[in-house]
């Protein structure tokens, strides 16, 4: 819980740019609740907000940087991770967070995603996955389930999707989890764990997109999408993320999948660059 509760201000406003509300997201969009969990997670960790920098790419969730009251960067499509890499390495005291969407991070930015995980750069990546490109009107993306409809897969999607936790875990991420916005407490806790763990940490957040993905796949309104998550999700902490593929129907595994320790990029830098200074 953040601070004292009052009748005038939402406690999360402490961490938000309240002067920019209401935000641009649609009614029932899941980006908002994931941001609420995120700022509560920041609060939970007690991290110094002056030392947090958040970087977003482009898309609906790319707008997150603009609403969180820390040093925040709204960059170009897919490029949040390399931008954040520069921030993190130039000032290792910063806690660098990338908050962006599945299309941004895994399609156009996919190359950066896998390399940041491989390097184990100190950064937390929060990937809001709504299974399509919402901002541009609902085209298929790198996570769109097979058979799902989108404006560019009118007959059903023939393009097999990424299983993101499996992808980043295989690349070397130190922490990998997946929750949905209807699991706010687990999500908040998981985000807090990701924020405090050294190295590359990754939280996939599944959420409704009633405006495009939901509409095109006849999922009903946002509440129906949330109900479907409640019904389909199976909490499976510790399972091998390779088993966490998401289909159009059927169970969705959620949970904290990976939590391991391996030296970060910065750990290696300190050790190996140190050789240059001894000479």
């Amino acid at each position: 819980m953040i601070g004292t509760k009052t009748l005038t201000d939402n406690p999360v406003d402490l961490y938000l740019r309240a002067d920019r509300m209401p935000h641009i997201w649609c009614s029932g969009c899941g980006v908002g609740p994931s941001v609420a969990c995120f700022v509560k997670a920041i609060h939970r960790t007690g991290l110094d907000t002056d030392k947090i920098a958040i970087v977003s790419g482009i898309g609906c969730s790319g707008r997150v940087a603009g609403y969180v009251k820390v040093d925040s960067f709204h960059t170009t499509h897919g490029r949040a991770i390399p931008f954040a890499t520069g921030l993190a390495l130039a000032n290792p005291e910063l806690k660098v967070v990338v908050f962006s969407g599945d299309g941004d991070l895994a399609a156009i930015g996919g190359n950066h995603l896998i390399h940041a995980a491989r390097r184990n750069i100190d950064m937390t990546v929060i990937c809001y996955n709504n299974f399509n490109y919402g901002m541009t009107g609902g085209q298929l993306g790198p996570t769109t389930p097979l058979e799902a409809k989108s404006t560019t897969s009118p007959y059903g999607n023939c393009d097999p999707p990424f299983n993101l936790p499996h992808l980043v875990a295989a690349c070397g991420a130190s922490y990998v989890s997946r929750w949905t916005v209807i699991h706010p407490r687990q999500l908040e806790k998981s985000m807090a764990e990701a924020l405090t763990k050294p190295g590359f940490t990754f939280v996939e957040v599944l959420g409704p997109c009633p405006t495009t993905y939901g509409r095109m796949n006849k999922l009903g309104r946002g509440v129906d999408e949330l109900r479907a998550y409640q019904e389909r999700c199976v909490v499976s902490n510790g399972v091998d993320p390779r088993d966490a593929e998401i289909g159009l129907n059927g169970p969705i595994l959620v949970g904290n999948f990976v939590d391991l320790s391996r030296p970060t990029f910065w750990d290696h830098c300190v050790k190996i660059f140190g050789r240059a200074q001894k000479k």
Binding site: L7, W25, G30, I182
Partner: peptide, 20 residues
Amino acid sequence: AICPDFALWIVPLEAAQKGE
């Protein structure tokens, strides 16, 4: 926690009645 618009929050009754 799930309000997408940061539009509602709760205040414990005791505090609310004190008008905080």
